[in-house]
Amino acid sequence: MEISTDRPTLASVMRGIRARKGWTLKQMSERSGIPVSTLSKVEHDRLTLSYDKLQQVSERLKIPMSDLFAETQSRDEQKVTGRRSIGRIEDAVQVTTDNYDYHYLCTDLRQKRMIPIVTRIRARSAAEFGDLVKHHGEEFIYVIEGSIEVHTEFYDPVILSEGQSIYLDSSMGHAYVAAEGCDEAVVLGVCSSSDAGLLDSLLNISKRGG
Rank of each mutant, 00 (worst) to 15 (best):
S165R: 13
T119F: 00
C182V: 13
D156A: 14
G163I: 09
Y51C: 06
S170D: 10
S165V: 13
H103L: 13
I121P: 00
T107P: 01
V177R: 01
Q78D: 11
V95G: 01
D156R: 07
T152W: 02
P64K: 03
L54Y: 05
I63A: 09
A179K: 01
S58H: 04
G87V: 06
S66F: 01
V177Y: 01
T97L: 07
D183Q: 12
S147E: 14
V143M: 02
L68E: 02
P116I: 00
P64E: 03
E138R: 07
D101K: 12
T48N: 09
T48D: 10
A179V: 07
K41N: 14
S125Q: 12
R120Y: 12
E90V: 15
Y155L: 13
V186L: 13
H136D: 15
K79D: 08
N99D: 10
M172P: 01
D45A: 15
L160M: 13
A127I: 15
F69T: 05
Y51W: 15
V42W: 00
L61I: 12
D76T: 14
L61A: 05
T81D: 12
T72F: 11
I117F: 02
Y104Q: 02
V57Q: 02
V133H: 06
Q94F: 07
Y100H: 09
I89V: 13
E153C: 10
V187W: 00
L54Q: 08
L105N: 00
Y176G: 00
T119W: 00
